[in-house]
Design a protein around this nucleic acid. Structure first.
Length: 264
DNA sequence: TTGTCATGCATAC
DNA sequence: TATGCCTGACAAG
């Protein structure tokens, strides 16, 4: 499930359930056992998300960096419940009342604050993080316009903008009416600023609802998966706005969906 | 039971 | 550009 909105939800959840608590951290599966000992028994001092990366800060100045990749998943449950456990638990976090289980992450490592800075330096602006003066938006615009790569590729590049994945990429470009093959350098500042503002909007809906809904009229409903989007996974079906068949192709080895009628 | 696919990314060539 | 890795759900047989 992981695009940026998922990771921000998890950061919020960690602060709600565990902030200030001493956590017992283990690795039932074993692969995280040695690193878990470095942070187990210490207090959680904050949980933050940047793009698709989660950073858990502990009172002994160590940081747990987690990246879910395609497969990673979180499960939270109360300490007293006995949930139906499926699969291997890489890391388990036990607080006073809540237990969080992590499965299948692509990255789960304990690092120092210097290494955190190195990771953050690689990441582009995150539409979900505060941007009162528009500095992050300007960084996004400038990074796109400096490149001749197609915008469909740039939106997936985490050093251009962080937190957007394959679903939001397709949907944002559809909503903006931008053809995914257009080089970044040909996209106007107005178009890019609107794209940024729309990404803030869609990702916030994702954080609030937990699902990627991109059709305005469904923001406050609980639509079926097949109804949530305009183009994603709708290849060959008629566009919801103009009726043109939705196109699909591989771009950078990922499936790209768009409407040749609406996106010029 | 087996095969395929998935909201990601690093690395080697 | 190709490959490997993280794992579970679902379709095909």
């Amino acid at each position: 499930m992981p695009e940026g909105h998922t990771v921000h939800r998890i950061a919020n959840q960690f602060e709600t359930d565990f902030l200030g608590e001493v956590l017992e951290i283990t690795s039932p599966q074993g692969r995280f056992a040695a690193a878990a000992k470095l942070i187990s028994g210490h207090k959680l001092s904050s949980a933050t998300a940047v793009g698709k990366q989660l950073f858990l800060y502990f009172s002994n100045d160590l940081v747990l960096r987690i990246h879910l990749g395609i497969f990673g998943k979180w499960q939270f449950h109360s300490k007293s419940s006995n949930p139906n456990v499926v699969g291997e638990v890489r890391a388990r976090f036990v607080g006073s009342t809540v237990v969080a289980d992590l499965r299948g992450p692509t990255v789960c490592e304990v690092i120092g604050v210097d290494e955190v800075s190195q990771v953050l330096d690689r990441l582009g602006p995150d539409p979900l993080n505060p941007d009162r003066k528009g500095i992050q938006r300007a960084r996004f615009v400038s990074r796109v316009q400096k490149s001749n790569q197609p915008i469909g590729q740039l939106l997936m590049n985490q050093s251009v903008v962080s937190g957007i994945g394959n679903v939001y990429r397709a949907e944002l470009l559809f909503r903006a009416g931008i053809e995914p093959h257009r080089p970044g350098s040909t996209i106007t500042t107005d178009e890019l600023e609107a794209l940024w503002v729309d990404s803030v909007k869609l990702l916030r809906v994702g954080v609030r609802t937990g699902v990627m809904i991109t059709r305005e009229e469904l923001f406050n409903k609980n639509p079926e998966k097949s109804d949530r989007n305009f183009v994603y996974k709708r290849e060959g079906q008629p566009c919801r706005l103009c009726g043109t068949k939705i196109s699909i192709e591989l771009m950078q080895a990922r499936k790209l969906y768009w409407c040749s009628g609406c996106q010029k």
